[in-house]
Nucleic acid binder design. Structure first.
Lengths: 151, 151
DNA sequence: GTTAAATAGGACTAAAATAGTCCTCAATTA
DNA sequence: TAATTGAGGACTATTTTAGTCCTATTTAAC
Protein backbone atom coordinates (compact mmCIF):
# COMPACT_ATOMS: atom_id res chain seq x y z
CA UNK A 1 0.00 0.00 0.00
CA UNK A 2 3.07 2.16 -0.13
CA UNK A 3 2.39 3.00 3.42
CA UNK A 4 4.39 4.27 6.29
CA UNK A 5 4.88 2.18 9.40
CA UNK A 6 2.88 2.92 12.50
CA UNK A 7 5.97 4.20 14.24
CA UNK A 8 6.40 6.85 11.57
CA UNK A 9 2.81 7.82 12.04
CA UNK A 10 3.37 8.12 15.78
CA UNK A 11 6.47 10.17 15.11
CA UNK A 12 4.53 12.81 13.23
CA UNK A 13 1.94 13.01 15.96
CA UNK A 14 4.61 13.22 18.64
CA UNK A 15 6.64 15.81 16.79
CA UNK A 16 3.57 17.90 16.12
CA UNK A 17 2.82 17.91 19.81
CA UNK A 18 6.34 18.97 20.71
CA UNK A 19 6.45 21.58 17.97
CA UNK A 20 3.36 23.29 19.30
CA UNK A 21 5.22 24.16 22.50
CA UNK A 22 8.66 24.31 21.13
CA UNK A 23 10.32 26.18 24.00
CA UNK A 24 9.64 23.61 26.69
CA UNK A 25 11.36 20.30 27.07
CA UNK A 26 8.94 17.42 27.00
CA UNK A 27 9.34 14.25 29.02
CA UNK A 28 8.45 10.94 27.45
CA UNK A 29 5.69 10.50 29.99
CA UNK A 30 4.24 13.89 29.26
CA UNK A 31 4.18 13.15 25.56
CA UNK A 32 2.57 9.78 26.18
CA UNK A 33 -0.22 11.34 28.20
CA UNK A 34 -0.81 14.13 25.72
CA UNK A 35 -0.92 11.87 22.67
CA UNK A 36 -2.50 8.77 24.12
CA UNK A 37 0.27 6.57 22.78
CA UNK A 38 1.68 3.99 25.18
CA UNK A 39 4.73 5.14 27.10
CA UNK A 40 7.18 2.43 25.97
CA UNK A 41 6.29 3.11 22.39
CA UNK A 42 6.60 6.86 22.77
CA UNK A 43 9.94 6.31 24.41
CA UNK A 44 11.14 4.17 21.54
CA UNK A 45 10.13 6.72 18.95
CA UNK A 46 11.73 9.58 20.85
CA UNK A 47 15.03 7.73 21.10
CA UNK A 48 15.02 7.06 17.38
CA UNK A 49 14.37 10.71 16.66
CA UNK A 50 17.27 11.73 18.87
CA UNK A 51 19.60 9.38 17.03
CA UNK A 52 18.44 10.90 13.77
CA UNK A 53 19.16 14.36 15.17
CA UNK A 54 15.60 15.52 14.78
CA UNK A 55 15.30 15.89 18.55
CA UNK A 56 17.80 16.67 21.27
CA UNK A 57 17.53 15.23 24.74
CA UNK A 58 18.69 16.15 28.21
CA UNK A 59 18.91 13.62 30.97
CA UNK A 60 18.29 13.97 34.62
CA UNK A 61 15.50 15.07 36.81
CA UNK A 62 14.50 18.03 34.69
CA UNK A 63 15.37 16.40 31.42
CA UNK A 64 13.31 15.74 28.37
CA UNK A 65 13.16 16.23 24.63
CA UNK A 66 13.05 19.25 22.36
CA UNK A 67 13.32 19.90 18.64
CA UNK A 68 16.89 20.00 17.37
CA UNK A 69 16.00 22.91 15.09
CA UNK A 70 13.03 25.03 14.19
CA UNK A 71 9.90 23.33 12.77
CA UNK A 72 10.49 25.04 9.44
CA UNK A 73 13.74 23.12 9.10
CA UNK A 74 12.37 19.68 9.86
CA UNK A 75 10.90 18.07 6.78
CA UNK A 76 8.60 15.12 6.47
CA UNK A 77 11.45 13.44 4.62
CA UNK A 78 13.62 13.84 7.71
CA UNK A 79 11.04 12.13 9.84
CA UNK A 80 10.41 9.28 7.43
CA UNK A 81 14.06 8.54 6.87
CA UNK A 82 14.66 8.62 10.63
CA UNK A 83 12.11 5.92 11.21
CA UNK A 84 12.35 3.88 8.04
CA UNK A 85 15.79 4.46 6.64
CA UNK A 86 16.54 5.98 3.26
CA UNK A 87 13.60 6.76 1.05
CA UNK A 88 13.86 4.24 -1.74
CA UNK A 89 11.02 2.50 -3.46
CA UNK A 90 13.03 -0.42 -4.74
CA UNK A 91 16.05 -2.30 -3.53
CA UNK A 92 18.01 -1.41 -6.60
CA UNK A 93 17.53 2.26 -5.86
CA UNK A 94 19.91 1.70 -2.99
CA UNK A 95 22.38 -0.76 -4.39
CA UNK A 96 22.66 -2.99 -7.39
CA UNK A 97 24.12 -5.88 -5.49
CA UNK A 98 22.55 -9.15 -6.37
CA UNK A 99 20.47 -7.70 -9.16
CA UNK A 100 19.97 -10.59 -11.53
CA UNK A 101 18.49 -8.48 -14.26
CA UNK A 102 21.86 -7.98 -15.83
CA UNK A 103 20.29 -8.47 -19.22
CA UNK A 104 18.60 -5.15 -19.56
CA UNK A 105 17.61 -3.40 -16.41
CA UNK A 106 17.19 0.12 -17.69
CA UNK A 107 14.33 0.11 -15.27
CA UNK A 108 16.49 1.10 -12.35
CA UNK A 109 17.41 4.44 -13.84
CA UNK A 110 13.77 5.29 -14.15
CA UNK A 111 13.05 4.21 -10.60
CA UNK A 112 15.80 6.56 -9.58
CA UNK A 113 13.97 9.46 -11.15
CA UNK A 114 10.73 8.52 -9.48
CA UNK A 115 12.48 8.26 -6.15
CA UNK A 116 13.91 11.69 -6.50
CA UNK A 117 10.53 13.16 -7.35
CA UNK A 118 9.03 11.65 -4.24
CA UNK A 119 11.95 12.68 -2.11
CA UNK A 120 11.52 16.26 -3.21
CA UNK A 121 7.82 16.17 -2.46
CA UNK A 122 8.54 14.94 1.04
CA UNK A 123 11.29 17.46 1.62
CA UNK A 124 9.06 20.33 0.64
CA UNK A 125 6.66 19.77 3.52
CA UNK A 126 7.86 20.69 6.99
CA UNK A 127 6.75 20.22 10.55
CA UNK A 128 5.74 23.85 10.53
CA UNK A 129 3.34 23.07 7.70
CA UNK A 130 1.96 20.09 9.52
CA UNK A 131 0.95 21.95 12.65
CA UNK A 132 -1.07 24.53 10.80
CA UNK A 133 -4.68 23.30 10.72
CA UNK A 134 -5.08 23.06 6.97
CA UNK A 135 -2.17 24.42 5.23
CA UNK A 136 -0.98 25.08 1.76
CA UNK A 137 2.71 24.26 1.89
CA UNK A 138 4.99 26.64 0.17
CA UNK A 139 4.67 26.30 -3.56
CA UNK A 140 6.93 23.72 -5.04
CA UNK A 141 7.48 22.44 -8.50
CA UNK A 142 9.05 19.22 -9.55
CA UNK A 143 10.27 19.27 -13.11
CA UNK A 144 11.23 15.68 -13.45
CA UNK A 145 13.32 16.28 -16.50
CA UNK A 146 15.56 18.45 -14.34
CA UNK A 147 16.40 15.38 -12.32
CA UNK A 148 17.90 13.72 -15.31
CA UNK A 149 21.62 13.39 -15.32
CA UNK A 150 23.65 11.21 -17.64
CA UNK A 151 24.95 8.24 -15.69
CA UNK B 1 11.82 2.40 4.16
CA UNK B 2 8.83 3.53 2.15
CA UNK B 3 9.50 0.68 -0.14
CA UNK B 4 7.49 -1.33 -2.56
CA UNK B 5 6.86 -5.02 -1.98
CA UNK B 6 8.80 -7.58 -3.97
CA UNK B 7 5.69 -8.50 -5.88
CA UNK B 8 5.39 -4.95 -7.14
CA UNK B 9 8.99 -5.06 -8.19
CA UNK B 10 8.35 -8.30 -10.06
CA UNK B 11 5.31 -6.72 -11.65
CA UNK B 12 7.36 -3.96 -13.23
CA UNK B 13 9.87 -6.44 -14.57
CA UNK B 14 7.15 -8.68 -15.91
CA UNK B 15 5.22 -5.84 -17.48
CA UNK B 16 8.35 -4.45 -19.06
CA UNK B 17 9.00 -7.81 -20.64
CA UNK B 18 5.48 -8.05 -22.01
CA UNK B 19 5.50 -4.46 -23.20
CA UNK B 20 8.58 -5.05 -25.29
CA UNK B 21 6.65 -7.50 -27.46
CA UNK B 22 3.24 -6.08 -27.03
CA UNK B 23 1.55 -7.82 -29.96
CA UNK B 24 2.09 -11.36 -28.77
CA UNK B 25 0.28 -13.07 -25.96
CA UNK B 26 2.65 -14.33 -23.32
CA UNK B 27 2.13 -17.47 -21.31
CA UNK B 28 3.02 -17.50 -17.65
CA UNK B 29 5.70 -20.07 -18.33
CA UNK B 30 7.24 -18.01 -21.06
CA UNK B 31 7.39 -14.99 -18.81
CA UNK B 32 8.90 -17.04 -16.02
CA UNK B 33 11.66 -18.29 -18.27
CA UNK B 34 12.38 -14.87 -19.71
CA UNK B 35 12.54 -13.07 -16.39
CA UNK B 36 14.02 -15.76 -14.19
CA UNK B 37 11.22 -15.39 -11.65
CA UNK B 38 9.70 -18.63 -10.34
CA UNK B 39 6.63 -19.77 -12.22
CA UNK B 40 4.16 -19.85 -9.29
CA UNK B 41 5.16 -16.33 -8.38
CA UNK B 42 4.90 -15.07 -11.94
CA UNK B 43 1.52 -16.67 -12.17
CA UNK B 44 0.35 -14.95 -9.01
CA UNK B 45 1.47 -11.56 -10.21
CA UNK B 46 -0.12 -12.00 -13.62
CA UNK B 47 -3.45 -12.90 -12.07
CA UNK B 48 -3.37 -9.83 -9.88
CA UNK B 49 -2.61 -7.64 -12.86
CA UNK B 50 -5.55 -9.10 -14.76
CA UNK B 51 -7.88 -8.35 -11.86
CA UNK B 52 -6.59 -4.80 -11.84
CA UNK B 53 -7.30 -4.57 -15.56
CA UNK B 54 -3.69 -3.85 -16.43
CA UNK B 55 -3.48 -7.10 -18.37
CA UNK B 56 -6.05 -9.13 -20.25
CA UNK B 57 -5.92 -12.89 -20.42
CA UNK B 58 -7.16 -15.55 -22.74
CA UNK B 59 -7.57 -19.12 -21.61
CA UNK B 60 -7.08 -22.31 -23.47
CA UNK B 61 -4.30 -23.92 -25.33
CA UNK B 62 -3.16 -20.81 -27.12
CA UNK B 63 -3.96 -18.50 -24.28
CA UNK B 64 -1.80 -16.09 -22.38
CA UNK B 65 -1.52 -12.53 -21.25
CA UNK B 66 -1.29 -9.18 -23.00
CA UNK B 67 -1.43 -5.54 -22.01
CA UNK B 68 -4.95 -4.22 -21.59
CA UNK B 69 -3.93 -0.95 -23.26
CA UNK B 70 -0.88 0.66 -24.76
CA UNK B 71 2.24 1.09 -22.60
CA UNK B 72 1.78 4.86 -22.72
CA UNK B 73 -1.48 4.47 -20.88
CA UNK B 74 -0.22 2.26 -18.07
CA UNK B 75 1.29 4.32 -15.29
CA UNK B 76 3.53 3.26 -12.47
CA UNK B 77 0.69 4.31 -10.18
CA UNK B 78 -1.55 1.76 -11.90
CA UNK B 79 0.94 -0.98 -11.22
CA UNK B 80 1.56 -0.03 -7.61
CA UNK B 81 -2.10 0.28 -6.74
CA UNK B 82 -2.79 -3.06 -8.44
CA UNK B 83 -0.30 -4.83 -6.20
CA UNK B 84 -0.53 -2.82 -3.00
CA UNK B 85 -3.93 -1.22 -2.98
CA UNK B 86 -4.57 2.50 -2.94
CA UNK B 87 -1.56 4.73 -2.69
CA UNK B 88 -1.83 6.16 0.79
CA UNK B 89 0.97 6.86 3.16
CA UNK B 90 -1.12 6.80 6.30
CA UNK B 91 -4.23 4.98 7.38
CA UNK B 92 -6.10 8.20 7.85
CA UNK B 93 -5.49 9.12 4.22
CA UNK B 94 -7.92 6.36 3.40
CA UNK B 95 -10.47 6.62 6.14
CA UNK B 96 -10.81 8.37 9.43
CA UNK B 97 -12.39 5.45 11.17
CA UNK B 98 -11.00 4.76 14.56
CA UNK B 99 -8.81 7.82 14.51
CA UNK B 100 -8.34 8.67 18.14
CA UNK B 101 -6.75 12.01 17.49
CA UNK B 102 -10.10 13.74 17.63
CA UNK B 103 -8.52 16.57 19.57
CA UNK B 104 -6.75 18.26 16.74
CA UNK B 105 -5.69 16.17 13.83
CA UNK B 106 -5.11 18.82 11.22
CA UNK B 107 -2.27 16.55 10.26
CA UNK B 108 -4.42 14.41 8.05
CA UNK B 109 -5.23 17.21 5.66
CA UNK B 110 -1.56 17.77 5.11
CA UNK B 111 -0.89 14.09 4.59
CA UNK B 112 -3.59 14.27 1.99
CA UNK B 113 -1.65 16.87 0.08
CA UNK B 114 1.55 14.88 0.28
CA UNK B 115 -0.26 11.81 -0.95
CA UNK B 116 -1.59 13.63 -3.93
CA UNK B 117 1.84 14.94 -4.83
CA UNK B 118 3.25 11.44 -4.76
CA UNK B 119 0.31 10.05 -6.66
CA UNK B 120 0.87 12.57 -9.42
CA UNK B 121 4.54 11.75 -9.59
CA UNK B 122 3.72 8.08 -9.99
CA UNK B 123 1.02 8.72 -12.55
CA UNK B 124 3.36 10.75 -14.70
CA UNK B 125 5.66 7.83 -15.40
CA UNK B 126 4.38 5.13 -17.73
CA UNK B 127 5.38 1.67 -18.81
CA UNK B 128 6.48 3.19 -22.07
CA UNK B 129 8.94 5.35 -20.13
CA UNK B 130 10.20 2.36 -18.20
CA UNK B 131 11.15 0.30 -21.21
CA UNK B 132 13.29 3.00 -22.74
CA UNK B 133 16.86 2.42 -21.54
CA UNK B 134 17.35 5.70 -19.74
CA UNK B 135 14.51 7.94 -20.24
CA UNK B 136 13.43 11.42 -19.42
CA UNK B 137 9.72 11.06 -18.74
CA UNK B 138 7.50 13.70 -20.17
CA UNK B 139 7.92 16.90 -18.24
CA UNK B 140 5.67 17.17 -15.29
CA UNK B 141 5.16 19.81 -12.70
CA UNK B 142 3.56 19.44 -9.34
CA UNK B 143 2.35 22.73 -7.93
CA UNK B 144 1.28 21.55 -4.53
CA UNK B 145 -0.78 24.61 -3.87
CA UNK B 146 -2.97 23.61 -6.78
CA UNK B 147 -3.88 20.48 -4.89
CA UNK B 148 -5.45 22.52 -2.19
CA UNK B 149 -9.18 22.47 -2.03
CA UNK B 150 -11.30 23.70 0.84
CA UNK B 151 -12.70 20.72 2.69
C1' DG C 1 -15.74 -36.12 -28.01
C1' DT C 2 -11.22 -36.25 -25.92
C1' DT C 3 -6.97 -34.51 -24.74
C1' DA C 4 -3.56 -31.15 -23.81
C1' DA C 5 -2.33 -26.57 -22.56
C1' DA C 6 -3.37 -22.69 -20.56
C1' DT C 7 -5.59 -19.40 -16.94
C1' DA C 8 -8.75 -18.72 -12.38
C1' DG C 9 -9.24 -18.86 -7.76
C1' DG C 10 -8.23 -19.81 -3.40
C1' DA C 11 -5.96 -22.28 0.50
C1' DC C 12 -1.98 -22.95 2.86
C1' DT C 13 2.86 -22.60 4.85
C1' DA C 14 7.02 -20.34 5.76
C1' DA C 15 9.66 -16.43 6.32
C1' DA C 16 10.45 -11.77 7.36
C1' DA C 17 9.36 -7.34 9.10
C1' DT C 18 7.09 -4.64 12.54
C1' DA C 19 5.23 -3.44 16.91
C1' DG C 20 5.42 -3.32 21.42
C1' DT C 21 7.37 -4.24 26.03
C1' DC C 22 10.77 -4.61 29.47
C1' DC C 23 15.18 -4.51 31.87
C1' DT C 24 19.52 -2.50 33.23
C1' DC C 25 22.71 1.38 32.97
C1' DA C 26 23.96 6.42 32.93
C1' DA C 27 23.20 11.24 33.88
C1' DT C 28 21.48 15.17 36.37
C1' DT C 29 19.51 17.94 39.91
C1' DA C 30 17.69 18.88 44.39
C1' DT D 1 22.47 10.36 47.98
C1' DA D 2 17.96 9.72 46.29
C1' DA D 3 14.71 10.57 42.74
C1' DT D 4 13.79 11.31 38.02
C1' DT D 5 14.68 11.08 33.46
C1' DG D 6 16.86 9.35 29.13
C1' DA D 7 20.08 5.46 26.61
C1' DG D 8 20.58 1.23 24.85
C1' DG D 9 19.56 -3.13 23.80
C1' DA D 10 17.18 -7.65 24.19
C1' DC D 11 13.20 -10.04 23.61
C1' DT D 12 8.43 -11.66 22.28
C1' DA D 13 4.31 -11.47 19.81
C1' DT D 14 1.91 -10.08 15.99
C1' DT D 15 1.17 -9.02 11.42
C1' DT D 16 2.38 -8.85 6.78
C1' DT D 17 4.48 -10.67 2.84
C1' DA D 18 6.26 -14.23 -0.10
C1' DG D 19 5.94 -18.23 -2.15
C1' DT D 20 3.87 -22.70 -3.33
C1' DC D 21 0.39 -25.85 -4.52
C1' DC D 22 -4.09 -27.85 -5.58
C1' DT D 23 -8.38 -28.10 -8.00
C1' DA D 24 -11.51 -25.97 -11.26
C1' DT D 25 -12.46 -23.92 -15.93
C1' DT D 26 -11.68 -22.70 -20.67
C1' DT D 27 -10.21 -23.39 -25.37
C1' DA D 28 -7.90 -25.24 -29.51
C1' DA D 29 -6.42 -29.18 -31.94
C1' DC D 30 -6.87 -33.74 -33.17
Amino acid sequence: MLRLSKLTDYATVILSHIAKENELTHSAMGVAEATGIALPTVSKVLKILVNAKVLVSTRGIKGGYALARSPEKISVADVISALEGPIALTECSISHEGCEQASGCGISANWGLINQAIQQALEAVTLADMIKPVNVPQEFLIPVSSLYRPI
